[in-house]
Write a protein that binds this DNA or RNA. Structure first.
Lengths: 242, 242
DNA sequence: GGATGTCCTATTGTATACAATTATACATGG
DNA sequence: CCATGTATAATTGTATACAATAGGACATCC
């Protein structure tokens, strides 16, 4: 309920399309619509009390965001995420988050740095208590601050786009209290590096942070959660999307 | 006329929306519609002989691709690219193209490697002759082969998306014969590294290739072409999009 | 003369009607 | 019994009508 595009945020309130788009996005990310499930225009339209037009336009946006796939004259289907996709996402993110942290070191404002410190401090409390809900929210916020601080709209939008995948992946993986504590410690180190003006250090730490997050995921049985898909992955290397 | 998304390629032939989407995209990239120009639904619909519905849906897609910006209840405007954007794009690309080249080294097929060699060989000819048109086409193809060869749909799509920006930027910058020759030499080195199975070398070379391309752009007066925008950039650092 | 309010036009937002396409079920022929 | 063709239902694709909104022109008031 927090990380929308600014332009969308406005659209959402004033247009049906925006509301539909947002509602569907939320439902897909939260797993209410399962992977490969078909979304029918009329059904969703009726459910939300709107006609097909805004629903269709929302579909087009969701497709470009990679959340659904539209097959012409057939239907719209919720896209599946394979183990290979998750791996690729974290590989790409590890590079871009590092770049972001490096730029943020140069461009961060005192206010943003202040919020970053507060975030880490507060998270250390929740981490020790094992409050996973709050940890997730604080983690999102931590990265979001860095996205803003890097002072690159391009990079910010890119990383923000990846974030939706992260949400979906989280639904599939179990985040442990131990990882929460470790993650918080990594956040703290990144924050300290930025505070000290050590751009290269911040970059390295942020990259490692992503690698660790991924490793933890694999260790905790990411592959077990993707039912059957990992088999196809090992056999062919390619992941057939249907 | 060559580098579309595969899924779109099919849609284009069978739906008006796809055709409209593609036509507008092409026109924006080719500079037929200037930056900040307003696109009106009815006008475009009449021009292409379709109703507003497919035009509207195409607009939604173009917005997500970053080519236009839709202001609710007002209109659709072609987005502008600032000098800062160009810089950021090449920074991000330098990292991702490097990653792509590294992965491609591990996963490239003999056929793809063959085409890569052929591409470099053919390009060396056109480079020496100063055939810029062909050079552009071969450059696009060279990178496209690597995108496919990296065996990561995520990375491939990402880099492919960036490509549209590259096309727009090219319209604003002058590519010289000298740069063509240098670029071809860099392509050759990347290809050789991949052929030799030197993943790290390929990564480093591909990253350098992007940095060089950007430096060349700046040297040849990228800033002069962005009329007035560079002034705002230097003054404030932030680039106001309106 | 300038500011402000109201009307009018142009444009986008939404709903709905109709056309085209796909998939399925069923019948018919081999 | 299986294959194939056809009819039908469900769903998406497109066009158009109508509603809502924004911006400007003009008149009115101070």
């Amino acid at each position: 309920m927090s990380n929308y595009d600014l332009k969308q945020e406005v659209t959402d309130k004033y247009s049906l399309r925006g509301r539909v788009f947002h509602k569907l996005r939320e439902d897909i990310l939260n797993g209410r619509y399962k992977e490969h499930e078909e979304l029918k225009e009329v059904a969703i339209g009726e459910e939300l009390g709107v006609s097909r037009t805004p629903v269709r336009e929302a579909f087009r946006q969701l497709e470009l965001e990679g959340l659904i796939q539209i097959v012409p004259n057939k239907g719209a289907y919720v896209t599946g995420i394979t183990a290979k996709d998750v791996k690729d996402i974290y590989m790409i993110r590890s590079s871009l988050e590092g770049m972001c942290a490096r730029l943020a070191t140069e461009n961060i404002t005192p206010e943003q740095l202040e919020e970053l410190e507060e975030n880490v401090y507060l998270a250390s409390f929740h981490a020790s208590k094992g409050h996973m809900e709050q940890m997730t929210e604080l983690d999102n916020r931590f990265h979001h601050i860095l996205y803003e601080a890097c002072d690159s709209k391009m990079l910010e939008n890119l990383l923000q786009d990846f974030h939706q995948y992260v949400i979906r992946i989280r639904k599939k993986t179990l985040s442990t209290k131990e990882r929460g504590i470790a993650s918080n410690e990594e956040h703290r180190q990144i924050m300290e590096a930025i505070k000290a003006g050590d751009a290269r250090g911040a970059e390295r730490l942020a990259t490692c942070h992503m690698v660790n997050a991924y490793d933890n995921m694999v260790k905790n049985g990411l592959y077990d959660i993707f039912n059957g898909e990992e088999a196809a992955l090992r056999n062919g290397g390619k992941h057939g999307k249907n």
